[in-house]
Nucleic acid binder design. Structure first.
Lengths: 331, 331
DNA sequence: AAAAACACTGCAAGCGGTTGCATGATATTT
DNA sequence: AAATATCATGCAACCGCTTGCAGTGTTTTT
């Protein structure tokens, strides 16, 4: 069907090896041969078969993106960045959906089957044991949005969630709030835990105690609303730090539903700075996470691991910044 | 490195063909041989190499999802559904990002390089010439969210945008609005055109004329806001039908920014019913598009095409429904 | 009971590249 | 000019699986 290397070789009057080498970076070919090959290839409309190459080299040029959260709009940006970055390098992005997955071994089998050259795990809710299992199975892994303090020896690129949580609290304090609650993502997620810890750090430094701390069941609007309503039923606070913008929006709507005035009676600060956070209906003050840096850096890293599986695990951190909008009262 | 078919064959005391057949649906193998093979495979931890199989069969089990809009949250659902559907069938989802792509030939080369067994083009903004080019290049294609009236012979699964636009208008009329404007997505997109046509149909049947018709530059919140502001600068209308929920939210915020009361002074109806449309800050009345049906059906179709490239092109339509919330006044 | 049909099985030739090795051609040293 | 190093090329053996074909053993038909 398609043109093969063999035909090109015949037409160019060279050996198959010559043609193959003409297409391999850094191979030893004279420019004369290369010219001949290029000419023949052009005339025939040849382009090498990735599949055959994969079989011979055991490199597939497939890089997996494993995710387990297809609710959060932040991931749209992740998908976009990831696919572009790979496409630019001539690599192919494979999507691995691990929603509802609980068995690391099952995932490992799947990954093996997929025969990816490497994966970036983009999730802060997927238990670290998954990334670990992938690594043990011999698949290069980088954990984007992962936990830096993770004890397992895995590449992590992300942010300092603890420090960022502290920054959020500092911002709240600067704006004059004192009775502050934390509304995190699912308690099982490392990012929720770390942001919560940072929240406590920040309060402690100011000599304050938390007004309340709770965790939503999911990184979703609905979960945010539910947990905020529960909070409002029990406590009176003057500001809340939400571990995610989506949760924060749910929480804000819960508060508004009770006629509470934002930001005068109740201030909000979120996390992520997703696109919608600047929508006028919310105008969320939030901690901006540098998604772009994280994904691009993750791709760099996983690509470099393909050539050097034994690369020693790195933790790459990017700084967060505060984006001030309208959910905090002015001082 | 990995266990190969050969080793399994030796261990099981059978030929390589036998092992291969044990793993091929519908092949001729006695259950005795199969047992032996399964035992040996289990002991060795064997699983067949997809790559080698691809080379031999020229089937890769890779199915591409081509998209060019990573802004619209609707696509999160698309990605989720698509990946799950493929994973269940033992197929592998490849993402193809065609944002900013203008040259069909370039995309074709990319697709060829990717060696997918088929693709579903999920977009209503990608010019039909792309899907056409893929088909001509011999790649099975189904166009999800495509245009049914498309003249090219390509499988399309989606909705009747024209009829759905008409439904939106009918809803507006039922709620007592008479001076109605249309705010579509980019004029170049087929869905925007068709919804616009349906809008006109609906008005005409009621003996009315459009109060205004315009198109946003993008399927985004910002674009919706911009175009709504332009509209408000020039005209006085009492309801607007937006060709997309995202655009509708931008438009609503533009109106609110001017102190206009929704739904009393101005009614809104959107399109898609994305997750956020039910958020309290918007509570959008909208035309629900059955994304799930569309994607699952598209996957079915593309999979069946892999086995039968010449399948005659089909148009599969699913009905839309109106979801009433709070952006229309009660009659 | 012989003939015909059927179900298995193994052989071996692919699928379309890559790459170690040996050889010949060129260039560099001394 | 001889000796040595460097570069370019081709040969052929893989990479790991599939499949047409031919051969054997078993079952069904008549």
């Amino acid at each position: 069907m398609a043109v093969t290397l063999k035909e090109v070789a015949e037409r160019a009057g060279v050996s198959q090896s010559a043609v193959s080498r003409a297409y391999t970076e850094g191979a030893s070919v004279s420019s004369k041969t290369r010219k001949k090959v290029e000419k023949a290839a052009l005339e025939l409309g040849y382009s090498p078969s990735l599949i055959a190459r994969s079989l011979a080299t055991s490199r597939t040029s497939l890089i997996g993106l494993v995710a387990n959260n297809f609710q959060n709009p932040v991931f749209l940006e992740v998908f976009d960045l990831f696919t572009r970055a790979l496409q630019e390098r001539g690599l192919r992005p494979l999507l691995v959906n691990l929603s509802d997955e609980t068995d690391p071994q099952h995932s490992v089998r799947m990954l093996k089957q997929y025969s990816v050259d490497g994966v970036v795990v983009a999730s802060s809710t997927l238990p670290p044991v998954f990334a670990k299992a992938f690594k043990d199975a011999g698949v290069p892994v980088v954990h984007a949005f992962g936990r830096i303090s993770s004890d397992v020896d895995i590449h992590v690129v992300g942010i300092d969630n603890r420090r960022s949580g502290e920054m959020a609290v500092e911002t709240l304090l600067q704006h004059g709030y004192r009775s502050i609650a934390f509304l995190g993502g699912p308690e099982s997620s490392s990012s929720a835990q770390d942001r919560g810890a940072g929240f406590l750090d920040g309060l402690k430094k100011a000599g304050l105690v938390p007004a309340d701390m709770r965790y939503a069941d999911d990184y979703t609007y609905d979960a945010g609303k539910v947990v905020m309503n529960a909070l409002l039923d029990e406590k009176k606070v003057d500001a809340v730090f939400c571990g995610d913008d989506l949760i924060c929006m749910g929480a804000m709507d819960a508060a508004r539903g009770r006629g509470i005035n934002i930001p005068e009676e109740l201030g909000f600060i979120g996390f992520n700075d997703m696109k919608m956070s600047e929508w006028e209906a919310y105008g969320l003050t939030t901690v901006r996470q540098p998604t772009r840096d994280i994904i691009l850096s993750s791709v760099d890293l996983v690509v470099s691991m393909v050539n050097d599986h034994e690369r020693t695990p790195e933790k790459r951190l990017f700084p967060c910044t505060i984006v001030e909008r309208q959910t905090l009262k002015s001082v």
